[in-house]
Write a protein that binds this DNA or RNA. Structure first.
Lengths: 153, 153
DNA sequence: AGTATGGTTCTTGAAATTAGGAACCAAAAG
DNA sequence: CTTTTGGTTCCTAATTTCAAGAACCATACT
């Protein structure tokens, strides 16, 4: 597949972004490619060839991205190839899924405070504040999503 | 410094958490230690010794954490040591700081759509939705912080 | 059955990250 | 001005991550 310079640049930028979010480089670029590509559904081989990466790297990254719920593939009868595409329409789920992990840290913080000496009142207070705000976030972010849906209309 | 098993476990958990957020292991553990330690202000050497790490690792991690605005140190006249502590009281700034980076990706997404073919209407629409929600988040999250401050009283 | 296609798995090498040790430096203490 | 203390920097070793290549496997096609 042919890409313009601008497209390639965008792919790299998105790739770096995804790397910072914890993905491996190849996985990030695949995301980028799927964002940018005029065809939003690409085969294994189109991806491999366009990004100039090996089959193994392609296979591993695609599987990872599927596990992370970012990607899926569809098939067409009479065609053995898989057509990979972003799960863009389900981005709301991803958001909500991300929100869940906030609670974990909040709970750890509460454990920390439970374990701490009572001597450091202000410090403990600060910790509880952070924990409480995280809980608040966890509770309010889904609402924000609904509100956004509303005001969009 | 002596730590209980529970404290050590919490430090490791916090450490892993911070690693996932992009810090190096030693830096993550230092954060953990400062969360957990009964003394919230620790010297270079207390940190080094408690975590059993080298001076260089300690020095580098502490400097990194200061750059990232998570840590500061204070001094006491007549005492050459630096006392490192979390910038816990300024966690609101960190939150707001994090919110800023959301916009970047939103803008990249808009660039992507600008570059895309007009053929894939629904796909482009989805991309714009994500971009728009991110902008909404960027705008609403600071408000959420203020709201939380309010309802706390 | 035999072959081609689409994709996976295993092994390995290269590159990047992480952290240790030793030498070093600046300020304070003696 | 010498020594000690607190911390930094440089160099290197070890570990981890990343991705390539080749062998492999399953399904579809002939």
């Amino acid at each position: 597949m042919n890409l313009t310079d601008k497209q390639r640049e965008l792919i790299e930028r998105i790739g770096v972004f995804q790397e910072k979010a914890g993905l491996q480089p190849v996985a990030g670029r695949i995301m980028g490619l799927l964002y940018v590509s005029d065809k939003p559904e690409l085969t294994f081989d189109e991806i491999r060839e366009t990004l100039g990466i090996s089959k193994s790297a392609t296979s591993n990254a695609l599987n990872l991205l599927q596990q992370l719920n970012r990607l899926e593939y569809i098939t067409y009868s009479g065609d053995r190839k898989r057509y990979f595409r972003l799960k863009l329409d389900k981005w709301r789920d991803l958001v909500l899924q991300g929100v869940e992990s906030i609670t974990d840290f909040s709970e750890t913080l509460q454990e920390v405070v439970a374990e701490r000496t009572g001597e450091t009142k202000e410090y403990n207070q600060n910790l509880l504040e952070v924990a409480d705000f995280l809980k608040y976030l966890h509770q309010e972010l889904p609402k924000l999503l609904t509100q956004w849906e509303q005001q969009k209309k």
